[in-house]
Amino acid sequence: MNVFRLLGDVSHLVAIIILFLKIFRSKSCAGISGKSQVLFALVFTTRYLDLFTSFISIYNTVMKVVFLVLSYATVYLIYLRFRSSYDSESDTFRVEFLLVPVAGLSFLENYDFTPIEILWTFSIYLESVAILPQLFMITKTGEAESITTHYLFFLGLYRALYLANWVWRYHTEGFFDQIAVVSGVVQTIFYCDFFYLYVTKVLKGNSKLTLP
């Protein structure tokens, strides 16, 4: 565990909590892509199956359980509890265009042809693109509430910090996880355009992110 990894995990947790509290407190999921949230729940489910097969640390187990619970709780808020506020007409990204190639690729390029490894690989690939329905929705409506942009900022920052963690681990431990690193780079690239808008617009005091 190094500082980049720890800050990355904290950033990831902050992002998920921001989103959950935003929906819970405002009793509305307006502007949030339910599809992205379902994909993230699927990411955690397929990645954390090792909760049943290997114990790494208390920290690892607790974080995995927290991520799983919060991701399903968020999906529950969007599709059941506050369903009437869900903007399904703007959430029109075709997720099968992500799921099919990601599933195919995880069968082709993995560390071991076993169910748990393939599902882990699937989760890594899927995570890198899971935010696309949300970004697509913002592009479509042309705006996002600032709280939603804070969520996206921390979610993007998390993987960027993991990149620093992988550079650190490569130099200190010789650790190199090719699948995670390549996917992590792809994932971070998707956020770059958003990071630029976040810094130039939201942090300058605009109450909303409006696209030019």
Partner: peptide, 10 residues
């Protein structure tokens, strides 16, 4: 090493 098993990252 290449790859990671068991996975210690989240």
């Amino acid at each position: 090493h290449f790859g990671s098993c068991p996975k210690d990252e989240l």
